[in-house]
């Protein structure tokens, strides 16, 4: 093509990007459920261990603790779920899911061998660099242990990078505590980790404390000195745990939380999960309390 004027093209507005066929991040990959673990006696939480059908794609998966994946019952919907597995184990992805809406209820009907759609990894995840050398306190309530479990197993696999690890985990009843193999067997045997479990209501076999998480946490009297605390759980537990942490002397910068908000695309495009100028799916779900206090209170 002849040019009319010989003006350099460098002064032109940036040309629109070429229409190459990069993978569309909204299109899920086919995955197979390898195993379903009933995490709670009531059946409210099931852990789905899934593997991408494309072995190369599964091998290439990379994520950080605290990041999320979209798991979809094809034909029903999609849910953003914190990954319960740790990237330090090259096994299946683990999605511990509470039946709450249409997709999660449909997922609870699925069995090993069936197909789901999966796409990942989304969100900022935990800042494990900033955690290096610190004593870490993990405070989890119910299903909130899911993302914490990823982080705790990550820390145990990189044990030398972190100080003392303290787990404080509570549920309504002993049967509602998730990840029983980890909390009763694996973690108590690991070096330099304290596992403290509590329940709101005990049963005949329960020998541990019967207390709500906030007062139980206060009774453990963790030191804020050189510590970071990560809190995940239901809103009411969060609210009172934050009061307890303030009483114990933790600053807002030392308190790390994860947010939940309705999400659909997971990639910062659909406009759903903003809090002020932040998108939970991109800039979260992990925020420090100090960061949250700078955002509009609309979540």
């Amino acid at each position: 093509m002849e040019t009319i004027l010989t003006t350099s093209a460098s002064g032109a507005a940036a040309a629109a990007p070429a229409p190459t066929l990069a993978r569309n991040p909204l299109v899920p990959l086919v995955a197979t459920i390898e195993k379903v673990i009933d995490e709670t006696d009531s059946g409210s939480v099931r852990n789905f261990l899934v593997r991408l059908d494309d072995p190369a794609a599964h091998e290439a998966i990379s994520y950080r603790p605290g990041q999320c994946g979209m798991i979809s019952v094809i034909g029903v919907g999609e849910s953003m779920i914190a990954l319960a597995s740790t990237p330090t184990h090259k096994g299946p992805l683990e999605f511990a899911v509470k039946a709450a809406g249409r997709n999660t209820n449909a997922l609870h009907e699925m069995k090993a061998g069936q197909k789901v759609g999966v796409r990942l990894a989304y969100g900022n995840g935990f800042d494990t660099e900033a955690m290096k050398g610190k004593d870490l306190i993990f405070v989890g309530g119910g299903i909130g242990m899911s993302g914490l479990r990823s982080l705790i197993n990550y820390c145990l696999d990189r044990r030398g990078d972190f100080g003392r690890l303290t787990v404080v985990y509570g549920a309504r009843s002993p049967g509602e505590l998730c990840f029983k193999e980890d909390i009763f067997e694996n973690w108590p045997k690991a070096p330099g980790i304290d596992v403290n479990l509590t329940v709101d209501v005990g049963d005949d076999q329960w020998k541990g404390p019967v207390a709500l998480i906030p007062p139980y946490l206060e009774s453990l009297n963790p030191s804020p000195q050189g510590s970071l605390v990560v809190v995940c759980g239901p809103p009411v537990m969060i609210r009172f745990t934050l009061l307890s942490l303030a009483k114990l002397g933790f600053t807002d910068e030392q308190i790390i939380m994860t947010l939940e908000l309705k999400m659909q695309c997971g990639i910062g495009k659909c406009g759903r999960c903003n809090i002020g100028s932040k998108y939970v799916c991109l800039d979260g779900p992990v925020f420090t309390l100090a960061e949250l206090k700078r955002l509009p209170n609309e979540y």
Binding site: A16, P17, A18, P19, T20, L21, A22, R23, N24, P25, L26, I267, G268, K269
Partner: peptide, 11 residues
């Protein structure tokens, strides 16, 4: 991330 559908149409 890029919204590939939009990007392809724009391009």
């Amino acid at each position: 991330f890029s919204d590939e559908s939009y990007r392809r149409r724009r391009g």
